[in-house]
Design a binder for these strands. Sequence first.
DNA 1: GACAACTGTTGAACACGTTCAAGAAAGGTG
DNA 2: CACCTTTCTTGAACGTGTTCAACAGTTGTC
Lengths: 271, 271
Amino acid sequence: MTGVTTAAADSAADDPGAGTPRSAAGEEAGPVKAAARGEAATEADSSPVERPRRARGEQTRQLILETALRLFRERGYAETTMRAIAKEAGVAVGNAYYYFDSKEHLIQGFYDRNQAAHRVAAERVLNTEKDFAARLRGVLHAGIDVNEPYHSFAATFFKTAAEPSSPLSPFSSESSPAREAAIAIFRDVIEGSSAKIDPELRRELPELLWLAWMGVVLFWVYDRSPGQRRTRRLIDGVVPLVDRLVGLSRLRVLRPALRQVLALIDTIRRD
Amino acid sequence: MTGVTTAAADSAADDPGAGTPRSAAGEEAGPVKAAARGEAATEADSSPVERPRRARGEQTRQLILETALRLFRERGYAETTMRAIAKEAGVAVGNAYYYFDSKEHLIQGFYDRNQAAHRVAAERVLNTEKDFAARLRGVLHAGIDVNEPYHSFAATFFKTAAEPSSPLSPFSSESSPAREAAIAIFRDVIEGSSAKIDPELRRELPELLWLAWMGVVLFWVYDRSPGQRRTRRLIDGVVPLVDRLVGLSRLRVLRPALRQVLALIDTIRRD
DNA sequence: GACAACTGTTGAACACGTTCAAGAAAGGTG
DNA sequence: CACCTTTCTTGAACGTGTTCAACAGTTGTC
């Protein structure tokens, strides 16, 4: 299932872009730039460009990103034009395209922040709870908490993330750092818990939980109930089920079924 | 989970649009037209237009749809411009917009056909098999068979269907006829089978199987393996699991768990 | 047949995302 | 310093989906 990779209340970017852009430090140090390009199979894309990022460039890049995210928040994604972003940031349109391959690529910045915010919010739970179900429940709710302010336009560019060939797809290689980071959270959920889990299942569980999380996000995106309370209920209902299932995983009687599931996962995973 | 509602090899529309468009009969009798409009909550949309559909209009409408689908198949969705469709159909651009609210709305026609084709293909299985697992397996494979020729661009406009506010979303009210039809197939899978199923589960099962089908479609859309064989394996692996689970549903020991699941579904369903 | 009220059709015009050739600024090298 | 190379910046121009005011065709009414 597809889904917004992460989520987070970036309370940064509160002051308009006008003045001093943050010093080049922090997030966004990543190298990824050369778009994998969607399209059909048209020969090798001869451009692993890899830009060196001088100081000035980094500054402009941040300025454009801040401005874009602010406008997205203020007006929504579709309603924010590239011209508006450029104008507000005080640069030419073309300049934005020098740093970001497309309007969609601006969203990646959003993901990265929300991922980080989810991590932080999850940490609070993971440091205090030992019970598996409580940990899982806390982490899932934290993820939704962090995404909540963006529900209205998360849906809008969820659309964008849904295209398999899009670099924004949670399954794309371009988002694999974010994906790994997300899976790591669920690994922590398991490892720090007191739960006794079948070892084979334990190995696969972080990824499975992440997948379940993607499912929850997907549900959330479609959730039109006030305050998305149906999603909250889904979490509260699903967690005990998962907990029970995981607990049952060590029962002799269910071994064959578990094996069957694990074998299936394995079969599917190898190409 | 989002997913292409249906699928089908429309072998109709083989002769180019040039000559006589089919007589207004057949599919597409539906009334739905007044778009729900996405956007924010901007007052009531004062237009439940409901067009009467005269004969001539219906003819033009069909012509435009045929032409569009043909071009989509030949060149892909993104590469087909509204201007090209209009030109090829011998009408003005604006005319296409008289019949279809947007380019995306042309896709709905595609869905409807594929839905019908899936029904037909499923029938063949349902008429010969009695075993639940075999029926389910057959129906799922039939659905993929029917979609196969369109895999390359199904992905492209899967993106479109993914947006929750889009009328193309499988969960939207605008696609509810297609959705109901799809669920009906799974109802037949169950009712015609020899399987003994807990009655409460039985009531919910068609919708659950449809949901699973949406999951399979989602997987298929993302499946890049040659011939999408991973999807085939997924089906072959998941069906026995579902079968086993359904069979177990009548066991006394698993009653509480089943109840828990059904209660969850109920909770979530009511807003 | 005259008139009105639709349904159906047109193509220019608009705003948007994106590209690109041109050039300015900054760094590096002798 | 002069020079070359690389990074960065510009804005006009292109092709796209979509809109809209105008007009044509059809149907119904007296």
